[in-house]
Amino acid sequence: MKRLTLIILAACALIMLLAASDLPDWADPASPASSHLSPGFVEQAYEATHTPNVVTAVLADYRGYDTMFETVVVFLAALIIMIILRRTPHRRFCKILPHRPQRQGRDTVLKGAAQLIIPVMQVFALYVLGHGHYSPGGGFQGGVIFGASFILLALCYNLEFTINRFRERIVLLCCAGGALLYAGVGALCLAMGWNFLGYAALAGILGVSEAMARSHGILLVEVGVGITVMAVMVSIYYDLASGGDMREGL
């Protein structure tokens, strides 16, 4: 059976590899992918959105509708993991489960290192989020770094210590809240008489030009993305590391 699978897959691979002959060469500037849509993005994005990072402009504005659902996918992952794994604390359960010793996290070196690193990480995360218009970065990257700072806290101290500082209910609210901020900005544009996610509608409220309004709109939705991603990272870690009972992490 295994050998049969191997033979079939190898045959498929061979066919697809040989068919690669009519694909354009690697890094060919004249290939359709590089010559059809991409020049339009590079040439028009700055004028339309005042965002030098073209990837950010395309991600959060031209294809902002995709990115909204991308945020929803992250939120969805946290929601599913919680709904499948999370066990409601139940008295009966507590008796059945064997008592597991809590790790106190008394290691001074770890704690000291965490105290040093975590604030720097969080400031850096905010920088990455806010500077996404001008350099590589944005909501996803910033959110992941911010979420990682909480995971580091849970690793160096223990899970309970982190949960006491960042409650599960608030984490879940942040998950939904970030995505809601994104969709809400879109809906606000719709209410202002523009199409959904047409950030230019914000020009009237913010008192800036349309291109500048798009730039601010991008920042707003990136903040929403950042909140969701940060909270989802923390939520997934809480659930997966403790097996759903929120008692002890790794």
Binding site: A33, S34, Y134, S135, P136
Partner: peptide
């Protein structure tokens, strides 16, 4: 696919 000979990262 996104690589272009002579092209740098797409930040203006």
């Amino acid at each position: 696919i996104g690589v272009k000979r002579g092209g740098t990262i797409p930040i203006l």
